[in-house]
Design a protein around this nucleic acid. Sequence first.
DNA 1: GAGTGGTCTAGACCACTAC
DNA 2: TAGTGGTCTAGACCACTCC
Lengths: 251, 251
Amino acid sequence: MSPTTTARPLTEASSDPAYLALADELEALVARLDPGDRLPSEHELTASHSVSRLTARASLQELEGRMLVRRVRGAGTFVARRIEYPVGPSMPPSASEMVRRAGGIPTSQIVSVQHRRPTAEVRDALGLGSDDRVVAITRTGQVDGLPASFGTSHLPADLASGITGYLDDGASIYRLLSDEFGLTPVRSWARAELVVVPRDVAPELGADGRPLVWRLESCNEDRSLGRPVELSQTWLRADVYRVRFELGEGE
Amino acid sequence: MSPTTTARPLTEASSDPAYLALADELEALVARLDPGDRLPSEHELTASHSVSRLTARASLQELEGRMLVRRVRGAGTFVARRIEYPVGPSMPPSASEMVRRAGGIPTSQIVSVQHRRPTAEVRDALGLGSDDRVVAITRTGQVDGLPASFGTSHLPADLASGITGYLDDGASIYRLLSDEFGLTPVRSWARAELVVVPRDVAPELGADGRPLVWRLESCNEDRSLGRPVELSQTWLRADVYRVRFELGEGE
DNA sequence: GAGTGGTCTAGACCACTAC
DNA sequence: TAGTGGTCTAGACCACTCC
């Protein structure tokens, strides 16, 4: 409205470029808001801070890079909900439990259930022979309705082919194995890594570009059977899950 | 030169925006080059692909986001050297060893060595009393001359205050403890997390903005002494180190 | 239909690196 | 000094979401 003349350093200190100063100002704002709250739009920031749209945009993208906000085309920029996800020697905490603990609402859907020949990688992990089959259960997960995870669990068909009858959206495979099949899976190994999301996985996670995501693989075995009963391979959005690794401490 | 009229999809397939198509084209180029090789400059891409500088720039920034290249103001855009850095229950591989294994040249300098009272966090980790002192050794590390790591090791002063005489740039604290002090440190616990680099650490890592970095903490103890002998807290550039977590497998 | 973020152009000035 | 990437402006059109 009023003729504010030139672009100056905003509130923040000294030599930062305008978009970083604005980003820091917005970061302080985010800290006062709740997950899901909307931030000012690019247009609003352009008007209120007398900067070009590109500068306003750069500041919001900076916050997206810091994983503090999530931007949705046509809708706006929203405070992100971050889920703590510890990975350690003890059994993995249920992902949906961690979401609820962070105040979020977890949902999930089954994408496909397939009876099929395993790949060599899956066959090795599950200790199967070349004629054995697996049940491959692929699911997507959301936090507060937004895509957050995507992955596949492989179960030896001879152990768990009857599982298809029990599956429904939101089912816990761990609980099915233990309640319906009398198995008590414990982790035999796990791996985790931060990678650029593959082209084909990106849309499953609602990702526009090629952001960084977590790749988690873990294998569970049943002690009494003495053999692996589940291999799970999962992608997690890094802006949703804060994966933290812990070794030792109280072993 | 000639009046190329409108912007069209470039070489790549279908519906990708121009900057992503160009990024994918450059990613293929990066795969054929060696670490340290220079990519075309923004200006060169502007001319060769008939796009605006902003579009050329966006494609190079996309590659930077994928951690495939490293951009240096005034110098150019270069293929990044990525260092595998496995973290698991076994003793940590020497960081400089992993750098050499990846074909890089590791260097390091001591920033400061301080005899001081530990913070509560350090005191707890090392199991010290309120009057005990520690030696805090802060170092920076480079890969091929570029900043890559920054961290501090805390040693109980009663065990290692004589270590100052042995320290020089490039020294391995593990080796000093074992060779000169008769200790055999083994990991008692470790933690790792991906975080936005704090303001004060960013310049130590040669970071312009506020990129994502690894935060590693680990505590080593001596079995025969039965007490902690080193707490190390380290920041690693995520575009240099590919941290990978491994639990179990061959325990 | 109004508002949002996603892409893109054609300029400009600057800080910095390398020579 | 020439070339690099870093920042910034003032426009424009588009795809998308929400009402």
